[in-house]
């Protein structure tokens, strides 16, 4: 079972209290009416699905109830950091970052 540090409760707690909520830092378009179909596809469906450090949202559903962000390595499942929802994505491990660059280029 994953042990997840909730940045609001400031405690490391069992996965069963949490719900995964998808890739983080995907901003809803500010002018939805002006989006093309391809832009909507990117916003709604395209995901990085990175093999490496993945920024993602979790919700401490059976706890404080808050959504927060986490940086987790998708190969080892190890959490590198968890942070409050407004904060920017922290940098991860060197190896994980390398595969991110590969994906974003």
């Amino acid at each position: 079972m994953l042990l997840i540090h909730c940045p609001y409760c400031k405690e490391k707690l069992p996965e069963l209290e949490f719900e995964y909520a998808g890739q983080a830092h995907i901003a809803r378009p500010l002018n939805p009416a002006e989006q093309s179909d391809a832009e909507w596809r990117d916003y709604l469906f395209i995901r990085s699905n990175v093999r490496g450090d993945h920024a993602e949202q979790w919700r401490h559903t059976h706890g404080c109830g808050r959504y927060f962000n986490a940086l987790r390595n998708t190969v080892s499942d190890k959490f590198i950091a968890t942070y409050e929802i407004e904060q920017p994505r922290p940098t991860g491990s060197e190896e994980g970052e390398k595969s991110n660059e590969q994906l974003e280029s």
Partner: peptide
């Protein structure tokens, strides 16, 4: 529930 390439998965 979470994205992963671990080929493992959790016990819960």
């Amino acid at each position: 529930q979470y994205v992963s390439y671990s080929q493992r998965g959790g016990l819960p």
